[in-house]
Amino acid sequence: MFERLRRTRRDGELSDGELHRAALKGSGEAMAAIYRRHGGLIYRFTLQMSRNETVAEEITQEVFLALLTQMDRFDATRGALSTWLCGIARRQLWKYLERGGNANHGDFEDESAEEPICPSDGPAQLLLRREAVDAVRAGLEQLPLVLREALVLCALEEMSYEDAAQVLAVPVGTVRSRLHRAKAQLAGLLRAEMGNTARRRA
């Protein structure tokens, strides 16, 4: 709770609730501020789950428009705006995925991601590290959706278990267990990848 208050009122900024009320009164600036504050989370979550930039953009737009059209459903006293928005994004995502929208895995190419070069690493270590990161990325895409969404929210977005549980509409224990299973699967994939690399080198 205190964490939430601190998060929404840092540096004298308006809280999410205040911005929301201002947006409902027709303040475009307030709406833009909400988007700048939470748009990244929603877009990244939808992108990571759908692997499709167009879909992620569409869902992100729908989610923020819902803030204007479904204003009665958001209660700032009951939960964080980010959680509420993420929950809407998740519902939209599942609708898309249930229509078979996840068939297109090739749209998403993260070419901008360059591995940082650590001066102490030799070329062999760098190569190994890169292969490991690629293996985990590939493994992330192969995870079942329910495990993937838990991993994206908790491990990549560093959301608390409680907030993730609210987004996923499951108990906190379920979030923990899904995260554990997701990491276990990734670790297995990583071990297999490392074993393959070692065999190739041998």
Partner: peptide, 27 residues
């Protein structure tokens, strides 16, 4: 490794093209 994946993941910003749309919707 997940830390590195997270760094790449966080590099994705929300598309700026949506901001004027939402601003107009609110106004």
């Amino acid at each position: 490794i997940l830390t590195e994946v997270r760094r790449d993941h966080r590099a994705n910003d929300a598309p700026a093209s949506l901001e004027p749309v939402l601003r107009a919707a609110a106004e």
